[in-house]
Write a protein that binds this DNA or RNA. Structure first.
Lengths: 335, 335
DNA sequence: CTGAAAGCGCTAACAT
DNA sequence: ATGTTAGCGCTTTCAG
């Protein structure tokens, strides 16, 4: 491996001078500087960032701990986070949710050991046993989409309102037997969306039907099983609210394969307003927010925190205002 | 920052003993070992992987340089690559294609400087000026999906055959005015798929119509502009072959928004067999391959290479056999 | 403006 | 079995 020592030797200067050419070029006489640059070129030298990190105590690296890419929402946030990070001069190490084990425990040694400059974290539960370690670590951290119960920096949608808007929309369309399908409520997102749904249903004085309300794994399998059961009920739901667009797309897949038409036979809606929701093949009614993407906002805030080295200072808590996007998968109840 | 020195002091041992407890626990007497482990626990110690890398010359990190996540194909490969890597004990640093600048130049310093153990690379052109540097670097490298013209390790689809199968399928359905929409042919994938299309058309003795054949940017904008032009021709195509599923989905979006029915008014097909292709809302006819996903194969091979430290040895060149998946977006030409 | 010397936190060789 | 010493490649004093 070619080191700054090799470059120094070839250029006939001392090793620290090579370092200076890299970090503070003006501080070295043009003549020598050019010699050094030439030597670098000739040897194909790349400064060892590992070694640099060891002394500067900064890795220019952030860790992203995200939900699965199978969910379009996380594909979009991951995309924008990595782009923003790169633009600001940071590398991104990515960790994804594991089907089996949705704890961050597994990644912890890697993240802590790698001395990342900051952490962007979606994979957290409301009362997460790992949170304490995270706080102790003193590493700047921003949650996005999901957040823990305790104080923290986060960027989330106003999920209560999001679910509420959607529920009200369906009620306005005359639906009463509304199914609600969601992930487990030990994460903030699903917990809050559930609250929004329940509140709005209660206000409308329409009785909720417990058999139509399910909190399950968000992967295909469980949804695959659930939907047919709902549809085959004596009194099937006339509308299904899915707590995420990703679930809604799976839901649509199954409903269509059962030969039902959307929205003529059944209305379906999601939350997140992912890219795919606006596709003509879906035209999914959903709730999202305009402005910058959530990942972008989270990344920008994290990087600000890193560069001001204000890990704690004023808490950054950003709640994005949701907006109902009515498309073609929801319609008036005819009957 | 808590270092092994601190742990050593607290446990009343020398610093290297702490290191031994980490790397070779059996070599240290149980009594001392437990003292050390306890001290680690109490102090909340995490070994500094950066420092370790500097001396072991191994980062347990691979770099993934991928096409954009907006393309479902790359979302799927990224997902499986990161999972496989994690499973094998490797972290993944991710770099994505930049809209503006599709060269890896930008990432180069970061990748080379970070001394990754291996590189998984899709973002390469047939004659890529960066290739030489890559080879010089001696870092194990596997290309997937795309490959350079020169000798290298790669995992790709037999793209000529893939396009050929699809073209033949449409010819068999009676189509003659077939449009072909693809990315630029300076990347192997698009170049080979083009060859497959052309060969098959020539064999059938049906004349290709140059105005229906386009090599453009794969992002929405250019496709958005192109499709209406094609549709509004005096003699519009009766079928459109898109060189990727991602392009096909965009294409379908536009065609549907123009009020055409698929496949009654126009047949559309893609290549890659991405997850979304099988969704009931699309039922896209496409070409893919069964067995393990491409990303998985590439990652497994790369890691093997790393662990055998056989950067060059026998070249690993894996060409996956394509399989035509006929769904519902292609149909017999009526009229 | 530049060289010499020290040290980041760890592992590896060498003693004991 | 364990402590001592050296050194990975870099940045950072400190002299001069």
């Amino acid at each position: 491996m070619i080191s700054s020592k090799d470059v120094a030797k070839r250029a006939g200067v001392s090793q620290p001078t090579v370092s200076r050419v890299l970090n503070n070029p003006e501080s070295v006489k043009p003549e020598k500087r050019n010699k050094v640059l030439q030597a670098m070129e000739e040897l194909g030298y790349y400064p060892n960032l590992i070694a640099r990190s060891l002394v500067t105590n900064s890795t220019r690296t952030i860790a992203l701990i995200s939900g699965t890419l199978k969910n379009g929402f996380f594909a979009e946030t991951t995309d924008s986070i990595i782009h923003i990070a790169k633009q600001k001069g940071y590398k991104t190490i990515v960790y994804f949710e594991d089907e089996n084990e949705d704890e961050i425990t597994d990644y912890w040694d890697s993240i802590m050991g790698h001395k990342v400059d900051g952490i962007l974290l979606s994979l957290i539960r409301l009362d997460d046993p790992n949170l304490k370690k995270l706080v102790n670590s003193q590493i700047p951290c921003v949650f996005f989409n999901r957040r823990p119960r305790n104080e923290s920096n986060f960027v989330v949608l106003d999920n209560v309102m999001a679910a509420s808007l959607l529920t009200q929309h369906l009620l306005d369309l005359g639906h009463q037997r509304i199914a609600y399908i969601s992930g487990k409520t030990d994460v903030s997102t699903f917990n809050e969306r559930k609250l929004g749904f329940e509140e709005t249903m209660q206000q409308s004085k329409i009785k909720q039907i417990p058999e139509l309300i399910h909190f399950i794994n968000t992967s295909n399998d469980e949804i695959d099983q659930l939907i047919p059961k709902l549809i085959h009920r004596a009194e099937p739901p006339t509308a299904i609210i899915c707590a995420t667009d990703a679930m809604a797309l799976i839901c649509i897949d199954i409903v269509m394969s059962m030969g039902l038409r959307i929205p003529e036979d059944i209305s379906i809606a999601g939350i997140d307003d992912t890219r795919m929701a606006s596709h003509q093949a879906f035209q999914l009614t959903t709730v999202g927010h305009q402005k910058l993407a959530m990942g972008e906002i989270a990344a920008l805030n994290l990087i600000e925190m890193i560069e001001e080295s204000s890990a704690q200072e004023p808490l950054r808590q950003i709640i994005l205002k949701p907006e109902l996007v009515i498309r073609k998968t929801t319609a008036h109840l005819v009957k």
